[in-house]
Amino acid sequence: MTCPTAPSPITVRPAHAFNDMATMLGPKNPDSSVCWCLSWRLSSRENRELRGIDRADVVRTLCDRERAPGVLAYRDGDVVGWAGIAPRSELYPIAHSRNIPHHDDLEVWSLWCLRVRPGFRKQGITSALIDGAVSYALASGAPAIESYPVDNADARVDQTMAFVGTRRMFERAGFTKAADTTSVSGGIPRILMRLERSGNGIPADQ
């Protein structure tokens, strides 16, 4: 009798590897205009005007900074997931949103995007991404981390809108609901969830 092989461990690292970012977020045709997860960093005007390879160049610059634009998950050396996490002040649409409230005046970090490569879903990668993103933010001095998932209960979430995550995902990671929002994703209301540095059993030096 053959015992099933245990899945390989997942590692999460700051997103400094541009080629791996391109695997997760970039188009097959380099000249094509895709989000590159910049829609949540730029103003509407900047987002409209930035096209094609210029979008990739902005991401390359973000990867070269000391502060990574997020984290990447790896299994057996292959990149398999991405989580966008950054100070909310760097994320123009969230910092200036009329639909997502500012819960308080803390300089919080926002975890706004989760993406897992096709073929690797339902393997624990999303949970590893959330945990890794939280650890990176706390190590970078974040006083609290916010997320803005759908409060979907058991309703199905359209795959194209699943990047925001679900309430249950973040509750498993220790987040709690902090406020309602007037934002929706795929027709489902989103909520503001928070994880405080000094709360939920997280030591200040994690």
Rank of each mutant, 00 (worst) to 15 (best):
T181V: 04
T160W: 10
D57W: 08
R60M: 14
W36R: 05
T166E: 15
R88K: 05
A179R: 03
P14L: 00
A128H: 09
D151H: 04
P101S: 11
L72R: 03
E196A: 15
P101G: 12
M24Y: 06
E90A: 04
L195C: 01
D76V: 05
R67W: 04
A68G: 11
G84L: 13
R197S: 13
A144C: 02
N29H: 01
L138E: 12
R55V: 01
P189W: 04
D154E: 01
L114Y: 06
D180K: 13
I94F: 15
M21G: 10
A95F: 05
G201W: 05
G52E: 14
L50E: 06
H96E: 09
R67N: 06
D105M: 00
I130P: 00
M169V: 11
D54M: 11
A22Y: 12
E146P: 02
E46L: 10
R197K: 14
S147P: 10
A56W: 13
P101H: 07
R115Y: 15
S185H: 02
A6W: 13
Y136Q: 14
H96L: 06
R115C: 15
D151T: 01
N99F: 12
G187Y: 03
C63P: 01
C37P: 00
S32V: 09
A155H: 15
R13W: 03
D180C: 11
A153N: 07
A153V: 04
S110K: 01
G187P: 04
Q159D: 13
N200P: 12
R13T: 08
E66D: 09
P87Q: 00
L62Q: 14
P27W: 07
N152A: 15
D78C: 13
A83D: 11
Y92A: 10
D31I: 13
E90H: 06
R55N: 04
S32R: 12
S97A: 03
M1V: 10
S185I: 02
V34T: 15
S33E: 05
F170D: 07
C37Q: 01
A137M: 04
S89G: 09
G84S: 13
I191M: 01
P14C: 00
G81L: 02
A153W: 03
A173T: 06
R190F: 12
L195T: 00
E171C: 05
S198G: 04
S147L: 12
T176D: 11
D205T: 10
G52M: 13
I53A: 08
C35M: 08
